[in-house]
Nucleic acid binder design. Sequence first.
RNA 1: GGCCCCAUGGUCUAGCGGUUAGGACGGCGCCCUCUCACGGCGUAAUCUCGGGUUCGAUUCCCGAUGGGGUCACCA
Length: 497
Amino acid sequence: MAAAVRVRIAPSPTGDPHVGTAYIALFNYVFAKKHAGQFILRIEDTDRARSTPQSEAAILRALRWVGLTWDEGPDIGGPCGPYRQSERAAIYQREIGTLVASGAAYRCFCSAERLDAVRSEQRRENRFVGYDGLCRGLAPAESEARAAAGEPFVIRLAMPRTGETVFVDRLRGEVKFDNAQIDDQVLVKTDGFPTYHLANVVDDHLMGISHVIRAEEWLSSTPKHVALYQAFGWQAPEWIHMPLLRNADKSKISKRKNPVSLDYYRAAGFLPEALVNYLGTMGWSISGDREKFTVAEMTDAFSWDRVSLGGPVFDLVKLSAMNADYLRALSDAEIVARLRGWRLSDEFLQSLVPLVRARIARLDEFVPMTEFFFAGDLDYAAVARELLPKNRSPKEVADILVAYVEALDGERDFSAVALEQATRAFCEKSGWTTKEVFMLVRLGISARKATPPVFETLAAVGCDLARRRLRLCAEFVKKLPAPQPAPAEVATAKDTR
RNA sequence: GGCCCCAUGGUCUAGCGGUUAGGACGGCGCCCUCUCACGGCGUAAUCUCGGGUUCGAUUCCCGAUGGGGUCACCA
């Protein structure tokens, strides 16, 4: 008598659609389908400073692109809506009320300064770092009075101070935490919005989530969630923490060391079915000698017993090889259709025409002139000389390129006008001349010293490909030999290598 | 640093007490071939270490080491 399976993916719309979201979504999706359950999409936008509707839209689009469609979600509704946490404020308010009333949670009036001071002292003394519980002893009447008087406060969970919290992770077995090691987590922020911990638990319960399948980074906050379920008197779901995708150096996958946006993979010409297959081989195997499978085949064969917990390194080379397999299996006509759905669309070609029409004398010049708009990674060897402006070292150039990419990360508007404005601001801040930076950007995104205007070009290349190329370009520059130092310096340099 | 998780070639993995430790990517070599690629064949490369348990440990237990995560009014 297996209970109904209801699982969810709960992304936070605060940036690009993340490959890790697709990874976790895949396992949720497959598990749901395996057990004829529901796969739910819930948008966790309680960080009102960072959440954006554009990001939410991008996440939905990307998840659809990889084919992981949901049974309930903010766009299609369902019996447990709304599916966007920002629209569920009344629910959290109601639920936290019961916790405050029962004493399982309490108001905390401590200032950020005081919390900082407490924490830094704890850190200095190498002790457990967490809230010291000052406001926990406040008399209910005083707490009420101060709140009524308009004093700002957060609401914290009153964690049990003794004993231990034990829960079962489906993949690891029993995991135990000493309660004294668990912080009195903030559940409601000063702005009245719930934190992840509260909203997540309340929604999972109200939406009937049976299995929480999420990334391992959540493992150490699970005892807080377990404590919350206990405080509410609710039955906790089953916990399943998937291993984290890793960079080549084994650290948690990150945009500094790996393309991480699903939009990049689409723009770079990966097929969604290949990407999703590859993600299915991260920490999971269908059998000993097979690694190519569809989502449907993965569903048929799925079992948690086939999960391995060592954090898998995400390898673009291996992904590309798998992508090649999928590509070759397509018919000629299908490949043409894919190309048209990618960049060889009328729409994209038309967007390029204004950039080149004044620069071409014959049609045949269009292709060579626009070649880099249709490429993935570029080779900078031919422009190596140009990449080092006068009096700039390889390291300086590499650093400025990386700084520029990071500045671009905050850019929501990727139009030529906005990009020019942002880039000029960047130059002002960094002290580099626009002449230097504009040329470096041009070289980075095109590997050419002559192109249509940089910002139009940048906008057309697109932010995902552009970021990838600029980072690669930075790496290329870093390896360039430094310009010839003055002879005197050579004579005295002894620690060159 | 405290707490928690993890550990098979460079990478993804199979293995669930006795195997010549299997497959894939990548590397190298050969074949195919007008070139390149595809394809085929071959090859080098792995059980982190130390204790147990056992007739026997890659496999089970403990410890060490190493790696990772987490310690926010971000998720």
